[in-house]
Design a protein around this nucleic acid. Sequence first.
DNA 1: GACCAGGCACATC
DNA 2: GATGTGCATGGT
Length: 227
Amino acid sequence: MNRSKGRVPKKDLTPLADVYSILRTHFGHRDWWPGDSPFEIIVGAILTQNTAWKNVEKAIANLKKEKKLSIPAIRRIPQEELAILIRSSGYFNQKAIKLKAFVTFLDDHYSGSLTKMAKASIEELRPKLLSVRGIGPETADSILLYALDKPVFVIDTYTKRLLYRHYYFDQEPTYEDAQQLFESSIEKDLGLFKDFHGQIVGVGHFFCKPKPQCEGCPLEHLPHRSD
DNA sequence: GACCAGGCACATC
DNA sequence: GATGTGCATGGT
């Protein structure tokens, strides 16, 4: 039984694996989310929430400069002081709370060790992450995939727009419906999951608001809506 | 000056 | 379960 709403049962849609091939051929492998450490990736995942990556880079550079980009440093630093350092990433008071909440979670469940955390299964980790203040589905899955090397497909705004614009759904899908579609239709492979999401975000500006800019998009020749 | 960017929590109906 | 609102900087 297909419970997902808005799923278009068309047979002539380009398989998602082929969409990946088109992007991969056009752009080559994208070194997506190349943080210097798993913790840096986690910090980035939280700071980039509804925020342009450019602003996040400045915040991360700030943290590095002040030697605060580590688990012990975030554990120790007062929230107010942390907020000032990450100011450029927007929502800085909220995000300071979130960063400290993650470290508290790590301390409580995995003795403050990402290595220990990484040994746990997706089934254990995902619900736990979702219970942490400030970690929703996209942030949780970004942490699982890019920081902990767990094969879950990350969905973001651009991914939902792509699925809608190219008729995989007749309205923008929910997170779960979009994830379900990807995970059931492409090979479950860590490298593929990482690069495919990177490719999608890489062409995200073609799906930008208020209306899509299709000129030059490698997916231009696929059937697509114009709204 | 308005609008948007690699979301999420919380309130309300 | 769907919809609305606050959170906030920086680029176009």
